[in-house]
Computed example of a mutant assay.
Amino acid sequence: MNEIASSPASPASSPRLACDSSRLIVFLAYPEMGLLDLTGAQTVFWAASKYMNARNLPGYTLHTASLAGGLMHTAEGLAVNTVALSDFDARTIDTLIAPGAPNILQAMNHSLDLVAWLAEASGKAKRTASVCSGTFLLAEAGLLEGRRAATHWLMCDMLKERYPAIEVDSDAIFVKQDAIWTSAGVSAGIDLALALVEEDCGREVALLVAREMVVFLKRPGGQAQYSQLLKSQTSESAAFDELHLWISHNLATENLTVETLAQQVQMSPRNFARVYKLKTGRTPAKAVEVLRVEAARRLLEESERNIDQISRLCGFGDEERMRLTFQRNLGVSPREYRSRFSR
């Protein structure tokens, strides 16, 4: 794997010549990039090549490349051997992939020449993709203006603030917009790579790779990348942590009104509604709705209960009310969601 993904090409196998019509995948390397952002997706393409070659079909040629070539240290301390980007004709590249970095802004500021190369090469390559905070590299290169994009949920607000022309999807595992693909945090690069393999090689090969890596074959994007309850516990709404846990344990109760919630935190309904909106950015009613949708999603994915049962367990009351709530929040019905995401 390391030899395929990271070693400089020998003169006899120049990266300009992708043999047997295999798809050339180039991973962009820079100082302090995330190791799993890089290797997770690489392993998917490497495994897909095995299955394609076993069928006498072309797979992928993988290269990790930096501006100057040579050893590149990751954030975790492991050094990766890279080839020089000047070795490639961008017109022969099937997919450019930009991994993220834990401190992406600092890493990006030290890699502006790489961003400039990416801005030019992306227009010539067939596809361009990013893993985790690698979305910032695509954004800085001007590739995401007017487009929807995903990144790690902890960095969504920073991406919105820095690049207001981007429609940031904080819920998606990955997003495809024309020839630009972006993905969420770290391991979501595996989901992204599986989707690319499915597009290139078909669902059967992608499923074989997913089984080999002991991961789920994930979908055409759109599943939540984080828990709403977890998000609430990492924001300024910590004062309401116990309330959120209480709500999650009492979702079957239909009358989770402002008065009921205010009583739990020993506040007046009016003051509670005001303070809650100030601290969390959403009304109490919307918070209950979001937690109900999340609980229903989990049951649709993992249980065999019918939709009417799930609607009652999550406090929607009936299937129709749950359907309308799903359409409003997710743009799909519960049945469509189950058919797409059920395990």
Rank of each mutant, 00 (worst) to 15 (best):
M33W: 06
C314D: 04
N306F: 05
R274C: 00
E145N: 15
G331Q: 09
L112N: 06
V197H: 12
R162Q: 13
H110F: 00
L105D: 08
G134D: 09
G100N: 09
P31T: 04
S333C: 06
L143A: 09
A150C: 07
V275L: 12
Y163I: 06
A165L: 15
S49K: 07
V215Q: 03
A68E: 08
A90S: 15
L243G: 03
F272M: 08
V115N: 02
G185T: 10
E198Y: 09
T74D: 02
Q266A: 14
L71S: 07
N109F: 00
A150N: 07
L118P: 02
A262P: 01
I166L: 09
W246T: 04
T128N: 02
E302M: 10
S303D: 08
S86T: 13
D241R: 15
E319C: 12
A12N: 12
V186F: 09
G331D: 05
G222F: 05
A273P: 02
R298K: 13
A121W: 02
A119M: 02
R148D: 01
K176Q: 15
T182E: 05
G281F: 10
M158R: 13
I93A: 10
E167T: 12
Y337H: 13
L78E: 07
L67K: 05
R323N: 11
L62M: 10
R55E: 05
Y276W: 05
V265F: 08
P58E: 02
F272C: 05
E204A: 14
D308G: 09
V115Y: 01
I247M: 11
D89S: 14
S339A: 12
K286P: 00
V214G: 00
Y226V: 09
A141P: 04
E76M: 09
M155Q: 12
K124W: 08
T64N: 06
Q225F: 00
S130I: 01
D308K: 15
L144S: 08
S303L: 03
S248R: 10
K231R: 14
L245R: 13
E236V: 11
